[in-house]
Design a protein around this nucleic acid. Sequence first.
DNA 1: ACTAGGTTTGGCAGTAACTGCCAAGGTGGG
DNA 2: CCCACCTTGGCAGTTACTGCCAAACCTAGT
Lengths: 218, 218
Amino acid sequence: MSLSQTTQADPPDAAEPSLGLADALPIFPPRHERDRQALEASRAVVGLYLREGTADLSVKQLAEHAGLSERTFYRTFPTKEDTIRPYVEAGLHYVVAQVRDAAPQLPLREVLTRAFAAPLDAAMAHGDGVFLAVLRQNEPLRAVWLKVITDAEVAFAEVIAGRLGGSPSSAQARLAGATVVTAARLALEPQTSGARPSEVFEGCLDLLGPALFEPRPS
Amino acid sequence: MSLSQTTQADPPDAAEPSLGLADALPIFPPRHERDRQALEASRAVVGLYLREGTADLSVKQLAEHAGLSERTFYRTFPTKEDTIRPYVEAGLHYVVAQVRDAAPQLPLREVLTRAFAAPLDAAMAHGDGVFLAVLRQNEPLRAVWLKVITDAEVAFAEVIAGRLGGSPSSAQARLAGATVVTAARLALEPQTSGARPSEVFEGCLDLLGPALFEPRPS
DNA sequence: ACTAGGTTTGGCAGTAACTGCCAAGGTGGG
DNA sequence: CCCACCTTGGCAGTTACTGCCAAACCTAGT
């Protein structure tokens, strides 16, 4: 939801096809203002994770550090682990927007590598860097991270379909969306070679061949 | 771990590269006998989910239905949601074994479609069928499902590398492993067309092109 | 300015998930 | 038979999470 609908005018809660990315965070009725507050709180909590690690942090501490009462914490985040969700979604949304807003004449393959390169490398370097370590040391957090990026596949399918000209629910678009997310995830895994994430990502697209990211007769 | 190591002689807890699939279920020291008991209990719980749905089932009820005391339940499953893990892993392990044990002269592409076809279609039809509905209605369970199948990517990378002749940690093997899992997952999503999962899976492999599943000079 | 309506907030209490601890039982080897 | 060891089950305690209600806070209308 929060990922794909940013540009579209708010569909008045029409019954969407709901492929899984919809009905995320059903808590928020007014939407936009809540979202910003949630992201702010999310950033605060992630910052705490980066400095203190994830072990031995109770909800009480997380809430306090985010400037929320414990009760309001649970109105903002459905579970303790969902604290990282807005933070991660913000990053994904940025990449999706990059793909969507890139010059139309550029080939998709080019757009994807450009859109992913900087965020991937930044995620590995310091700054966000420790966040990956957080995910590696905390299984429940990694689980929601996986879920969030997987749900983002649909958003990527949409912007890819927008460029390729097909339906967002076509097999090609859906698979392409899933594939770029998978490639990005692999690029963030610890590499035996010293390659940067953006290089690994490009290598994955090379291995996949060009067919998937080219327009098709359908 | 439990996925890839079934045929190999137990490596005496050597320090593996640990790409994420390792250190799963660190609870089990003796391993094999515990695994069988866990799978049995897992099947029982899944059976209960299929009949009763997942809402309003406490750990106490799950444990009782599996013939375990509540305390032993938590020695068998680290969390309530992990009950489905052995059940899912068993299915994945079956497919991995099919790929590993297929006739060596068969092309990988052929092997994959044969290995996945039956389980995928069976998962959609009745029997396991409702299990997908369970995952769709219960977010936490879907999260662990995602995690389990994602961890299985490494096992698929290993058997694929075994067929292709490269290293299991090569970019090609790792990506191929991730890709087949992704394709299988997409095949199990609700389809607008009435296509069977095995057909969708094949369609995905077609879209990806043959390059990924062919031996390479490296 | 004051009030009425609705919405957000915080505290309190209750439930359910999970963990540490220990005593009881079961098993195998001397 | 007994002793070491492992597994089991119960109990108590902690932590995540929810329902409920009263106080605070807009906002609009008069």
